[in-house]
Design a protein around this nucleic acid. Structure first.
Lengths: 140, 140
DNA sequence: AGGTATTAGTTGCTTTTGTAACTATCAACG
DNA sequence: CGTTGATAGTTACAAAAGCAACTAATACCT
């Protein structure tokens, strides 16, 4: 019985994921009081443009209640604005406000810096392989 | 600015970690009603032998409140038994019960099967590199 | 048209996690 | 000794996540 937790991939992945998220999380939490789900929603709106909550769910792989609450929080912070659609009033289109767009820009830059710092000690080949491996496991 | 979330390592790691945990989690949750922290504590006791809660915290990288609650739950399930130490009554040594040991055995086997299935589509070299990469990021 | 089924999104309730304060025991130093 | 400080562990309260029921609007089907 030579099974070690450190060889158990889900464990390893979770540890690595936790470690890698911690610092960046403290950045957007500390600076903007945002939660992880909020950052993800903000990112999707900033990166792909305005869309409905339903689309955010599909793209981000988040449950609709999480998105709903995140949008409420982002709206309270004036990062996001809702626009009701005439043609189908079940939908509401979600837009970043100018302020939200600035926050998105800041966080995106920070994310890139963060990513670069984290990967600095690895070779491009390693990084490429790593991304492929993770994408495959994540089913992306 | 072509920054994509899929290139952001913390995101990728989290997605992969979530995906990889889901199935195994549903196994121990469905079969034994256990939470992730409980499985981790059980594992450490089964793998490294009896130890105090403090040691579990240190080895597993868990906060003491999480461990405290997990132990309470594991004790209620009769998987773990507490033994107060004479020499220092602040500590309590944690042991698996015979039943707990059987559950540990089952979960460990399942974890190995699970791990093997997940890695089946990768080469040994890839796996090795992957483990090294993740360990380094996780700071293990 | 009129009833039924879908779809988008929200709200309420329960479970789980995080944080901080608290208890109890022991160590250390005057 | 005895006061102060550390340590192990628990508990209480607040934040967050998960799940299921609910509302409102539209589509479908006869």
């Amino acid at each position: 019985m030579t099974f070690d937790l450190r060889d158990f991939m889900p464990y390893l992945l979770n540890q690595a994921a936790d470690a890698s998220s911690r610092d960046f999380q403290s950045y957007y939490k500390g600076k903007y009081g945002m939660l992880r789900t909020e950052w993800r929603v903000l990112f999707h709106l900033g990166h792909y443009g305005a869309m409905t909550a339903r689309e955010v769910c599909a793209r981000a792989g988040l449950h609709k209640t999480k998105v709903s609450r995140a949008v409420t929080a982002l709206e309270a912070k004036r990062f996001v604005r809702r626009e009701e659609l005439e043609q189908d009033r079940r939908h509401t289109m979600l837009h970043l406000t100018p302020h939200g767009a600035r926050v998105f820009g800041d966080l995106t830059q920070e994310a890139q810096r963060f990513d670069a710092a984290m990967l600095a000690e690895f070779t491009p080949a390693e990084i490429k392989q790593m991304r492929a491996f993770l994408s495959r496991i994540a089913g992306l």
